[in-house]
Write a protein that binds this DNA or RNA. Structure first.
Length: 851
RNA sequence: GCCCGCGUGGCGGAAUCGGCAGACGCGACGGACUUAAAAUCCGUUUCCCGACUGGGAGUGGGGGUUCGAGCCCCCCCGCGGGCACCA
């Protein structure tokens, strides 16, 4: 018997599909469309297991939907701008464009070997000027529509390299290469007004019913709409006042202090007169800009000497601190602190000796004895120590406080969002140039559309720190389109989220000179099923939702939501290994012996650690190319699908891939055996119950696998197919009727694995005597008559404990079921002569006898 | 620090609507085939007690609702993801 030659077979079918143009898509108003898209990759060098998983999932959906009769669009391209290309340029002297193009060609070859059903005619890379020219135009349209503005914002600054650092380049507050303590600096930057859509982006989440609930929740929290109040505290001895935002105006009588951000205008003003405060403000500017870094640092403050006057109590003065935990960008950049009911305020009050007065008494507690210890009370309750608010519940008190503030002219109700505008300026070379010219007399001027694209210069120098575009001798010097005078180009480039915020629409018309071609976009969009990592749950997906709305406002398209369905896949993990002296070891560097794990090179004992996300730094990576070379693409695909459900993390194991490989070969052998057998002449003789059972199981499998695939339960689908395979193997016998039964079931199995293991399926389909392509076959249909079982097994419990089972006719009468259950010997033992208090009968499922 | 998620045999997981926990696979053990090995095939495999019939426990821990909880509610523990310049 021949062995399955995956290498030859996979190459053969890939070529045949390609020649037949099986996966080329074209709009066809007469057929229902289905757009399936996987998040396109950053061309980092080679594909990794995360890609293999992501693209396998997408391919199964694409092939399944195609078989179901949909007109499927399934494209692939390259998210080609980004930081790693510049790092490669600095470390190895290779130009980012060259590095990127080489990576793309390597990765394209790797993807092709996986047998993915892409329409490769639509491929593009975002670093091509033919792509980014359109986003330069979009940006200018956004500018015209008032969706773009420029302001100063903080960046991470490495004082040794004189460079802006990305958050990931800041490790424990230091620059990743220089090791210098990172500082915060302010730079003028471009912002997209995503906040203008905050309400809409939030409210529309509820209609995204085919998105995972947790992703919607994450976006909801990210947008962070909060209802509260702006409160104006007059400043003692001054004419101005301090504006504070709070969600808890009910706790104003518990106020102990006000705090402002280190770059609040009042802080700047006071620091100018107070060298110690000035030093404190400078200290606040040390450290990274990320929220995590700010929130985890020690909470510290400095008294400005200013005194804020309480809005409700004349003569009550609160100290005003500069505090390192108050964010400029949220609310008004100033807060009031109520230590009794906010943990951060409590910690601050304890550190600076400020009073802690409880104003909310928890229910069921004597308000007189209520005091705050080490923990703030943030729960519900009734107001105390709060004059006109006393006795009100928290919610009522919030409303009453706002009414009183408004009436007195000391404040007003306000809605605030956590969502901040999207800063798109990056001080880097390998990105899309921002099409702006800075003119000394006209100010910032958009590049005229006819002059687009603004192309990146190719001759750049990565030898020195900072932005190569800024250092380039000639590139930035130009003339102002307004006055014709000498002017300078914007040397910042776009955040790379810019490219990924509209690429899904470009796939509909990848070559259209106008960018987004209305017919193509109108036919294919929105994406019916988008698939990618959970790590993109917020930023990429939210930016894309916003961008689509902005494009609509500018007339590019006419819908709001780009992704109707979303599936977020888990990470691919692997066990980690370390040598005795703590070096990370790769899976190739270790060997398993009777004594445990050893380092192959030295034979020294090694330690296996827990399974973690595959990463180069922990060396626990398995290269897909090696796996595909050894086992073939279908085996790799099967393993990706079989054990873990897509949304969960998947653990890569050698044993798992071996198991998948065994199944591929088992199926191959079974079909070979069926083909070699003398031709089956159809059913002879009378109905055999075993054959009938296989036939029923075959149809039940079609129904269940179809349902599993609809719900992306790929692991369940694989299990069902394996079960049917086992059932085929169990039907022994060489009679013509048995042979025919086995062959029928195997034919169904081959059709069902079509989306999962397309090469194997295609080869077996051919061997079963078909001369057309399985890729073009419709999905098999289950015969409803064969899905209904006439006998059912029913569990029988006594007081919730299983005591036996009954096999009964389906839908048997309740009295009969009860009688049969009570007649079971074990049930009678358990009842021990007592009279059951009740007998619960759930038809066709369970009986529970309660005594 | 804040937000989100997850936790079921030795392992990955299944249990679709609150109704027989452990499907399917991996591993392990036993057997067949073989000079031998690989491959393959057959069987056993949640744990504890027990020779067996059988009995008991059991879905991270504790409590609750229910005739009945892996699933719903409350508290706790552990692990992971995101936090706006990685993509």
């Amino acid at each position: 018997m021949s062995r399955y030659d995956f290498a030859r077979t996979e190459a053969k079918w890939q070529e045949i599909w390609e020649e037949a143009g099986c996966f080329a898509a074209s709009a066809d108003a007469g057929r229902p469309k289905y757009y399936v898209l996987e998040m396109f990759p950053y061309p980092s060098g080679r594909i990794h297991m995360g890609h293999v998983r992501n693209y396998t999932l997408g391919d199964v959906v694409a092939r399944f939907k195609r078989a179901q009769g949909f007109n499927v669009l399934h494209p692939m391209g390259w998210d080609a701008f980004g930081l790693p290309a510049e790092n490669a340029a600095m470390q190895r002297g290779v130009h980012p464009a060259v590095w990127t193009k080489e990576n793309i060609s390597t990765m394209r070859q790797q993807l092709r070997r996986m047998g993915l059903s892409y329409d490769w005619n639509r491929e593009f890379a975002t670093c091509d000027p033919e792509y980014y020219v359109h986003e330069q135009r979009m940006f200018l349209d956004f500018l015209r529509e008032g969706l773009v503005y420029r302001r100063e914002a903080w960046v991470n600054w490495d004082p040794v390299e004189n460079t802006v650092l990305a958050n990931e380049q800041v490790i424990d507050g230091r620059g990743w290469r220089s090791g210098a303590l990172v500082e915060r600096r302010k730079l003028a930057q471009w912002f997209l007004k995503i906040s203008a859509y905050a309400d809409d982006l939030l409210d529309a989440l509820k209609d995204l019913t085919r998105w995972p609930e947790r992703v919607r929740l994450m976006q909801e929290n990210w947008i962070g709409r909060s209802q509260g109040a702006r409160v104006w505290f007059p400043l003692a001895g001054r004419d101005d006042r301090l504006e504070v935002y709070t969600t808890r105006p009910d706790t104003l009588f518990g106020a102990a202090f006000c705090a402002i951000a280190a770059d609040h205008p009042l802080a700047v003003e006071c620091a100018a007169k107070d060298p110690d405060l000035s030093a404190f403000v400078a200290e606040c500017a040390r450290g990274a800009t990320s929220e995590a870094a700010i929130e985890t640092q020690e909470k510290r403050g400095y008294d400005t000497g200013l005194r804020a006057l309480h809005p409700f109590v004349s003569g009550w003065e609160l100290p005003v601190y500069v505090a390192n935990f108050v964010l400029t960008e949220y609310g008004t950049g100033a807060i009031f602190g109520c230590p009794a009911h906010d943990q951060r305020d409590l910690d601050f009050a304890r550190a600076y000796g400020l009073p802690v007065v409880p104003v909310v008494a928890p229910p069921d507690i004597d308000p007189h004895g209520f005091a705050i210890g080490a923990e703030a009370y943030t729960g519900p309750g009734r107001m105390i120590n709060s004059r006109f608010l006393d006795g009100l519940a928290v919610e009522e008190a919030i409303g009453e406080a706002i009414r009183r503030l408004s009436a007195d002219g000391n404040g007003e109700g306000a809605t605030t969002f956590r969502l901040r505008d999207w800063g798109v300026s990056r001080q880097r070379y390998w990105g899309c140039p921002i099409p702006i010219i800075n003119c000394p007399s006209c100010g910032t001027v958009g590049v005229p559309v006819e002059d687009l694209p603004v192309r990146l210069p190719e001759d750049v120098d990565f030898g020195a720190p900072g932005n190569p575009l800024d250092r380039h001798p000639t590139w930035k010097h130009t003339t102002c389109p307004g006055c014709g005078g000498a002017a300078v180009r914007e040397t910042d480039t776009f955040d790379t989220f810019f490219e990924s915020s509209w690429y899904f629409a470009r796939f509909c018309s990848p070559d259209a000179p106008e960018g987004l071609e209305r017919d193509g976009v109108g036919y294919w969009m929105p994406v019916d099923q988008y698939i990618g990592g959970i790590e993109h749950a917020i930023l990429h997906l939210l930016y894309s939702r916003f961008f689509t709305r902005a494009l609509r406002r500018c007339g590019y398209l006419d819908f709001d939501e780009p992704f109707a369905g979303l599936m977020t896949q888990g990470m691919v993990c692997h066990e980690t290994y370390r040598s005795a002296d703590g070096r990370w070891l790769s899976p190739d560097e270790i060997a398993r012996t009777a004594d445990g794990i050893v380092e192959q090179a030295t034979g020294a004992a090694a330690i296996a650690g827990r399974s973690e996300k595959m990463s180069k730094s922990k060396k626990n990576v398995v290269d897909p190319e090696g796996i595909i070379g050894r086992y073939g693409a279908d085996t790799a695909r099967l393993f990706m699908l079989s054990d873990s459900p897509p949304e969960r993390d998947l653990e890569w194991t050698d044993a798992g891939i071996d198991g998948a490989w065994r199944f591929v070969n088992r199926l191959w052998r079974m079909v070979e055996a069926a083909v070699v057998e003398p031709a089956a002449e159809g059913g002879t003789g009378k109905k055999d119950p075993r054959r009938e059972r296989l036939r029923r199981e075959t149809h039940r499998t079609i129904a269940r696998v179809t349902e599993d695939l609809e719900k992306f339960g790929f692991n369940r689908a694989v299990a069902r197919i394996r079960e049917l395979t086992n059932a085929v193997a169990e039907l022994s016998g060489g009679a013509a009727a048995e042979r025919a039964a086995r062959r029928d079931a195997l034919t169904v199995i081959v059709r069902l694995i079509g989306p999962l293991m397309p090469h194997l399926a295609e080869e077996l389909w051919q061997r079963l005597g078909h001369d057309d392509l399985l890729a073009a076959q419709p999905w098999p249909q289950a015969d409803p008559a064969l899905l209904v079982e006439d006998r059912v097994k029913v569990g029988v419990q006594v007081n919730g404990k299983l005591r036996g089972t009954l096999e009964l006719a389906r839908d048997a009468g309740e009295d009969d079921v009860r009688a049969a259950a009570l007649a079971l010997p074990k049930v009678m033992d358990a009842i021990a002569g007592k009279t059951p208090r009740s007998v619960i009968v759930v038809p066709n499922r369970i009986v529970n006898v309660v005594i």
